[in-house]
Amino acid sequence: MTSAKLFGICLRISADRDAAEDILQEVYIKVWNRAGRFDSGRASPITWLCAIARNAAIDWRRASLRPGTVPEEAASTVADSALPADRVIERDQMCARLLDCIDQLQRGHGDAIRAAFLDGLTYAELADRMAVPLGTMKSWIRRGMQRLKECIGDG
């Protein structure tokens, strides 16, 4: 169910159940009222909705949370009510390479990129969580993303 995927995104990034529900309402209102007109040549509707939810949750997080709040903790407290994960994202062959390519990165680089995407963390939050200097984190992300692009091989 799409709403469970979108709520999962909002909850993990906001780490706050009430806020996540609020964010998800905003996401649906955006889509229903102002109607999302997505470019079907570029993304599946679900990917498009996921991106809207992630952006909205990151927006809330940056505006509301103090630095250092760790989303993982709150996410794990709701694990009991979580539904089994499934694959709701349609993939083409090129997309399927992403996870393989992340696994091929140096461990810190891959972990940092994953955390940045999934938890909506900034450079400063990433450096704090992984206990490395800010400059090191920036270099990990930049080099990691460059390698990822080369690995995926679409230019």
């Binding site: 169910m1 709520f7 996921c50 539904l83 994202i89 999934l118 995926i152």
Partner: peptide, 20 residues
């Protein structure tokens, strides 16, 4: 954004409250 989209699979499904 297209390259990173498969990562959305890693989010756990969580049913929102009925009040949504």
């Amino acid at each position: 954004q297209r390259r990173l989209a498969p990562l959305y699979d890693e989010y756990t499904l969580v049913a929102p409250a009925d009040t949504l």
